[in-house]
Design a protein around this nucleic acid. Structure first.
Lengths: 197, 197
DNA sequence: TTATTTTTTGACTAATTGTTTAAAAATATA
DNA sequence: TATATTTTTAAACAATTAGTCAAAAAATAA
């Protein structure tokens, strides 16, 4: 990658981050190209040098955080830890990523408000893929006898993902607990739901 | 309430429901007065006969579902059931209301994208009030010795509410499980997180 | 039927916003 | 330095939308 390509990639990143920030506050339709540009002291016109249009910008924004998330969960699933540790790790990793990249993460919350057509399909599919990794961990836990075999995997997965994503709605850096403490607490409580007793 | 007042109230209701439907799909900024009106075969002009402006319409939309929710949870908290039954009931009632009034319920998800100023403050306050009722149930459970006293009430409340609200993201009437089945399953799994073992 | 009140309409305004474009500025190259 | 290339700008355009309002239509009362 040449210097010039690097510079372009860097600029794209900056634009994507700015877009994510505005998006988290105002939602897709409330986010204007003007505001995204203003954050970076550019004019909205120059953003069209880097992105085809607003949809393109928004979708790449979504891609960025999705890729990050999928990468993390895959690492956990493919590790040689036991199911309990895997679930614990998946929960913690999700919370730490979500809280540190709050604005980007909020994108994933309501894809049907942000995308249409193929972009929507792809976003939904990726969300399914992400969710499926949790199923894998739960199945493994049941098969190896550490998780309660009477749990409903689909329901438990929904409960866990819901709990995790909801952190975005209330977490604040200035809150009484650090992201790490929250992650630990979530992992502890959620595990109680699935481990055999 | 006179007949005329009733008719006006009915029309307002219709408009609010239409607004909620569009809002659930497109978000605050994506919802146009035109579309809300078109759903009811009226023109947008006539909606200004019933509502001051868009903000007013949206906020009353939020009020409608908030009032319903607060009413339900208060009934549960004030009943003479034991804490386990109360939590079970609160969970079930939330899910049944959310799934039957999906579009309206989606409003409450991200108030900061929908409201500003006083409206936002009020919406956030009501959300806190609602959440607080869950704290009350959890406290009562710990005090009476049925819930594990080592749980972190604030965290558990966040986990439960997150799980409940997330149902909106995946629930479909055509899904494999009825709302009742989902409600039962959620209650069962979530209770495992808090009851003493 | 006629008069009065209530409700709806649809055209209009003003503001906003996504996108294009031609020129200017900045940067690299020879 | 002079030329070519890349990047940014500012203005213009077309489309959309919240909100207004006077007049028409519909409903109701007299």
């Amino acid at each position: 990658m040449s210097l010039r390509e690097k510079k372009i990639a860097k600029k794209k990143q900056d634009i994507l981050r700015s877009a994510a920030t505005v998006l988290a506050e105002k939602g897709f339709h409330g986010t204007t190209m003007e505001e995204v540009a203003a954050n970076l002291l550019m004019t909205k016109g120059s953003m069209y040098y880097y992105f085809k249009n607003k949809d393109d910008l928004m979708f790449q924004c979504h891609q960025m955080v999705m890729d990050l998330s999928l990468d993390k969960i895959q690492q956990v699933v493919n590790s040689d830890k036991n199911p309990t540790e895997k679930l614990e790790q998946a929960v913690k990793s999700h919370i730490l990523l979500a809280t540190s990249e709050k604005s980007m993460f909020l994108m994933m919350d309501q894809p049907n408000q942000n995308f249409t057509g193929e972009h929507l399909e792809e976003a939904l599919q990726q969300r399914k893929d992400y969710a499926h990794h949790f199923d894998d961990i739960l199945k493994e836990g049941i098969d190896t006898g550490v998780f309660d075999e009477t749990i409903d995997i689909r329901m438990v997965r929904f409960i866990i993902l819901g709990a995790l994503n909801w952190t975005l709605q209330w977490y604040s850096e200035d809150g009484p607990q650090t992201a790490e403490e929250i992650a630990d607490s979530y992992a502890k409580h959620l595990l109680k739901m699935v481990v055999k007793r």
